[in-house]
């Protein structure tokens, strides 16, 4: 319980501090960081806890984004409902697609996700152009009306809302990965799936459920993206951005709680700052990623956690001597 409170308190504290950075850094930048970190959270969970690398994340982002966008363009004006619709659409698609994709492992899973991303891009750009307007996209600024409690049409209101959603997502993943049996089973799937089946677990269901959770969170990020930018176009599902979520996860530390946040902060920061000086800002991100991977392979947060754990374990006295009566 104490650990839980510490963890939950830590999460809230980090986001509250980040929230008040708006005095130092532009709120638009911080909002983008938060949306990207939510997007990368699902990917980080898949890589770090299940060992599944997906290059199809833009597709899952796009379903959430288009779910919200189509609702706002054709059916309603409430941004809260739009976000919920985006998540629901994403959830349904993930449940269906996941049934097929999680049957695959390692490289096949990665590549088929990327193929799914290509299909999704084509779907929104060409096949459904009558409703999505392809590359021009859906412009929603005149469709959205102020919402009660927190007005999502104002940048201040959305900034607060994005942080509240992020806290919710982080607490959910904290509980899921650190406190639940499901989180432990996910780690075991990564470690040795077969052994988990010997214990009586249906590992297909575990992977499917994890896939649905991870990508519905990406869908949530997509819905937030649509509401924040008041538009959505087919480029959101572009396969050229497929590596972004993976890069952010790896940079911050896949499977760590704050890895996606640190990764997003660096990624968006480099994109915004470096792109002012050089057009190919991706070069720097690429080099940084290589350096971080060579230094620790666990990303910035992962390496830091490892270092702290090492320091802690050096202070712990060795376990008591084991007697013969212990058996074996």
């Amino acid at each position: 319980m104490k650990r839980y409170l510490t963890g939950a308190t830590g999460i809230i504290l980090v986001f509250v501090l980040l929230y008040f950075l708006k005095g130092v850094l532009p709120p638009a930048f911080l909002t983008e960081v938060v949306i990207y970190s939510i997007y990368a959270m699902g990917c980080s969970f898949l890589i770090g806890c299940l060992g599944l690398t997906s290059f199809g994340q833009p597709a899952f982002l796009a379903f959430g984004a288009y779910g919200a966008g189509i609702y706002l363009y054709y059916f309603g004006t409430n941004s809260y409902v739009a976000i919920l619709v985006g998540m629901l659409v994403s959830l349904l698609i993930n449940m269906l697609v996941g049934k097929f994709l999680v049957r695959l492992s390692s490289s096949y899973f990665t590549l088929c996700n990327q193929a799914f991303c290509v299909v999704t891009f084509f779907l929104f750009q060409k096949a459904l152009v009558k409703w999505t307007f392809g590359d021009n996209g859906l412009l929603l600024i005149s469709r959205m009306k102020p919402t009660p409690i927190i007005d999502l049409t104002s940048s201040k209101g959305f900034y607060l809302f994005a942080f509240l959603v992020a806290i919710g997502v982080w607490l959910f993943f904290y509980y899921l990965t650190k406190k639940s049996v499901f989180g432990a089973t996910c780690l075991c799937v990564k470690d040795n799936e077969l052994k988990l089946r010997f214990l009586g677990y249906n590992t297909f269901n575990i992977k499917w459920f994890a896939f649905v959770i991870a990508n519905t969170v990406a869908g949530l990020a997509g819905a937030l993206y649509t509401v924040y930018f008041c538009m959505v176009n087919a480029n959101i599902a572009s396969v050229s951005s497929a590596s972004e979520a993976v890069a952010i996860s790896m940079l911050g530390g896949a499977g760590t709680l704050f890895g996606p946040l640190v990764g997003s902060f660096l990624f968006i920061g480099l994109k915004d700052i470096v792109s002012q000086f050089i057009s190919h800002w991706e070069l720097l991100v690429g080099f940084l990623l290589i350096v971080v991977m060579l230094a620790g392979q666990k990303g910035i947060v992962g390496s830091l956690e490892e270092y702290l754990a090492k320091q802690k374990s050096e202070k712990i006295p060795p376990a008591p001597a084991l007697t013969k009566e212990g058996g074996l």
Binding site: V181, T185, C188
Partner: peptide, 19 residues
């Protein structure tokens, strides 16, 4: 091969939960 990242307690809990 036991689950390396899990403690003995967690390894047993995993089995308890399944059964």
């Amino acid at each position: 091969h036991v689950f390396l990242d899990l403690t003995v307690r967690e390894n047993l809990q995993l089995s308890s939960y399944a059964t």
